[in-house]
Design a protein around this nucleic acid. Structure first.
Lengths: 213, 213
DNA sequence: GTCTATACACTGATAGAC
DNA sequence: GTCTATCAGTGTATAGAC
């Protein structure tokens, strides 16, 4: 019994993870309205009705997907705080967010779709967690400006630019792929993208570009 | 009869325009899958079945909406060509695209959604018109670089950054509104956004910021 | 040309056997 | 815990009266 209980829990967690992974892909490709429980079930490899055992409703499943993405997304901000200055901080944040765009393109799309549709399930997070996070980072940037370590730019719009640019490589990945002769960016392509972005933005805020990590 | 024919044509065009406008909003808010013909009909102020008289299928209506947006979107590029140099060209393009984001937020969202879902109806435009447009602008930028009028940056990723940043203000308008204490950007807010973006990007590519127009 | 009524397919969700 | 069978509701699209 003591060996069975953990094994079943592991089994449940494993299934939930597989469902969430499938749901993320389907929601990203079809949107909330276009996604069907049938498609998610097929991709997760279990009967449709089984989904309703793990997640009572389509909306509950969707909510879980969006919340998971939001957590991963926020965690990328850690590099900002541990930075010693604007060059390292902004460069590390660009690198971190670009790697997230590459690793979780579906998640980024679900997030974008959720916000574009008026954030019906995540509005409270925007008003609390995200608002606080944004205020905190704006203060950090403003301090760097006040200390003369970077040009006096508008911290809020700098953050928007960082979000927009990095997430673009996930959300508009299909367009980028098409303009890259139909092939997704390879290692060199991603490295060059990160380099180009850091060059323009870091130069744009008046700091030296730190050496490659 | 000669007075009736044009009047009816005008009536038809007026109805089609109202349907397209309503469809743009509904598709933007709910996505293709979440949008219903009923909702579009209600917003356009006519019976649902009437929609199928003007547009045979939901997909045909959607396709028309997306193509209209693409045309408007491309037209903003004109300012790029008539520019005398990188500072004026890039600044004018940022201004133009930001004004489009403000004027047609729903259109921008429909476009973003279409691309995010793999461009099911607009793929051919991406491969032809957009690819050609992109190549052409990259050549213009490369020429400016070769002439020593701006820093040697990667033209492709500069274009992506311009698209990402300007469209972000439409596509993520809800998030920006939430972080602006729930209020949409006012005239001053949009002006400041444009100014901040131009400051960072123009400085980032090594050109002087032109005086406000 | 316009609208009412309806056909037909599909969706999310559940009941109930195993 | 898991799956089969099924329901109630809603969606697109159309037929046919006006």
């Amino acid at each position: 019994m003591e060996t069975k209980q953990p094994r079943q829990k592991g089994r449940r967690q494993e299934r939930e993870a597989r469902i969430l992974s499938a749901a993320e892909k389907v929601f990203a490709e079809a949107g909330f309205g276009g996604a069907t429980m049938q498609l998610i079930a097929d991709m997760a490899g279990l009967p449709k009705a089984n989904l309703h055992y793990y997640f009572p409703t389509k909306e509950a499943l969707y909510r879980q997907v969006v919340e998971n993405i939001f957590q991963i997304w926020l965690r990328a901000a850690d590099v900002f705080d541990s930075a010693t200055g604007p060059a390292e901080g902004i460069a590390a944040y660009i690198d971190a967010k670009m790697e997230l765009s590459r690793a979780y393109p579906a998640g980024s799309k679900v997030w974008a779709s959720e916000v574009m549709h008026g954030a019906p399930v995540i509005q409270d997070y925007l008003e609390t967690t995200l608002a606080e996070w944004t205020e905190g980072r704006m203060e950090v940037i403003q301090r760097w400006i006040d200390e003369g370590r970077m040009d006096p730019i508008n911290p809020r719009h700098l953050l928007y630019m960082l979000w927009a640019t990095t997430q673009h490589y996930a959300d508009f990945g299909h367009q980028i792929e098409t303009l890259n002769n139909g092939a997704p960016l390879d290692d060199a392509g991603w490295t060059e993208a990160k380099r180009a972005i850091k060059q323009i933005i870091l130069t744009g805020v008046g700091v030296e570009i730190p050496p490659e990590t």
